[in-house]
Design a protein around this nucleic acid. Structure first.
Lengths: 109, 109
DNA sequence: TGACATACTACGACAAACGTGGTATTTTGT
DNA sequence: ACAAAATACCACGTTTGTCGTAGTATGTCA
């Protein structure tokens, strides 16, 4: 089976994470599980990719972080989307629609 | 207007070039014009990106090159797709269909 | 004559994603 | 009771595609 290479989905990791954070604050491990589930197991984000995306997006103020705890008391870092992140997400959605149309012109029938 | 960023189309430059080479041998300048035309001006590949893609694909044996001349006698390097390039192109098409489905799950309605 | 199109190349920089390896706690299976 | 797996995260250095800048050289047209 053909797999999804990182070069192809590159540029959409941030969008996928923001999509999930729009549903409420979350943390690394949960996000990675959700990406796997929602993609039907077709895409599994690498941990390093995920955490470096968090750092990058926080420095761009697309998300903010705060410390929390799981039910059992384990520490977690939660992330929440900002207004700027919302705006950025919508721009990526618009861009996706453009990009999709362009790429499809180069996909043979 | 939202523009297409390179990070988003990244990973599809090779596919676009191969799509055009499937229609017959071509060269840098022509390929870049055709990408611009086919995309309706929405995507303009940078020269350096294009020529480095040629080098990369030739080393991977997805394409081969030969010297030719324009009507006016100017030298040109033509590129032709190989059988391996054909196979690679079809794999990218399959991958695109998968990727498209995955990304759309993260695009809010 | 000088701008513009054609046709390409060299060189270094950058940023996203990756590979590897590590820490530490909690839950589950036998 | 003990091991294995799952949870939760981080540091560090590398790779790769794309890009910015700059340069060479010829042809065309006003």
């Amino acid at each position: 089976m053909t797999n999804i290479s990182s070069d192809v989905i590159r540029g959409y990791n941030d969008t996928m994470i923001l999509y999930l954070l729009r549903q409420g604050p979350s943390y690394g491990y949960e996000i990675s599980k959700k990406i796997k589930e929602l993609s039907g197991g077709k895409y599994i984000i690498k941990e390093t990719t995920l955490y470096s995306a968090f750092t990058r997006m926080e420095s761009k103020e697309l998300i903010t972080s705060y410390s929390g705890e799981s039910e059992s008391g384990k520490k977690r870092t939660y992330y929440r989307i900002t207004d700027q992140g919302e705006t950025y997400y919508r721009e990526r959605v618009d861009e996706w629609n453009l990009t999709k149309d362009v790429i499809e012109k180069f996909i043979a029938v």
